[in-house]
Amino acid sequence: MAVTLAEEIVLLSLDDESGSAQQRQAAGWAVAGGILLELVLAGRVSVTGERLEVTDTTPTGEPLLDGRAALMATWLRGRGRRRATDWLAHDQPKAVSAAVEVLCRRGVVAEEKRKVLGMFPVRRYPEADGTVERELRDRLRAVVLDGAEPDTRTAGLIALIHAAKLHALAFPDGERKRVTARMAEVAEGQWAATSVRQAIRDTQAAMAAVAVLTVTAVS
């Protein structure tokens, strides 16, 4: 079963048994960044410096990507180019919910509704099919801990995890310094074409910038 980078990040962030989300804000930035990166790699969007532009409206066939691309096109309408950081800030609160919805439809997680203190409704998304996350973690382990060469998508995923500082979600029992160093090496490595590496770096830069802006605004 093929899942998007954004869905993979959501799987890493959800507790398998309780279905509760961990590191919500950082994971949210990584999910929004994952959608943006895949649209860039698919040739549907371009990020040039700070500027974002829709270059091709042809559907990719992936419900999550096509849904966000349509929203992005509407957001950009009449404005030409806008900053990638503005889009990430706009999309981050909604991107996780969109990715979770697709995972539910795929049967990978299940939605559970309950009330806290009998009053406040909450939703949890425990794992329904563990094979997808196991394959995901095996791929990450092979590259980060065993030194295997990454394919483009795995390297992109690692770069997003590294940029959002989600190392502990991917490797809760791993040696933190070793994991961080290897992820940084993959993110900066020569494993793909220059255009692909640039797309990942542009996405990482946009994620970092918008996270700083958010922290500044809150403080």
Rank of each mutant, 00 (worst) to 15 (best):
A163C: 05
V132F: 04
L145S: 02
A164D: 09
V179H: 10
I158S: 08
M119P: 04
I158V: 14
A187D: 02
A128K: 08
L169M: 02
V179S: 03
A148M: 12
H167E: 03
L169V: 05
A187F: 12
P172V: 04
R134N: 12
P121H: 05
A193F: 09
A148W: 10
D138C: 00
D151I: 09
A193E: 13
V122P: 06
T180S: 15
T152F: 03
R176W: 08
K177S: 13
G130H: 09
W191V: 00
E188A: 15
R176C: 02
F120G: 03
V132T: 10
V144F: 05
A155S: 08
V132H: 06
V132I: 14
W191N: 01
R141E: 01
A192V: 14
R134K: 14
I158D: 03
G156R: 04
D129P: 07
E133V: 15
E112D: 06
A164M: 14
H167G: 09
E127D: 03
F171S: 11
L136W: 15
L157P: 01
E135D: 10
V179T: 07
E135R: 09
V116Q: 10
A184D: 05
E111V: 11
Q190P: 07
A168V: 04
E175C: 11
K177N: 11
K165I: 04
R134Q: 14
A184E: 11
E111S: 04
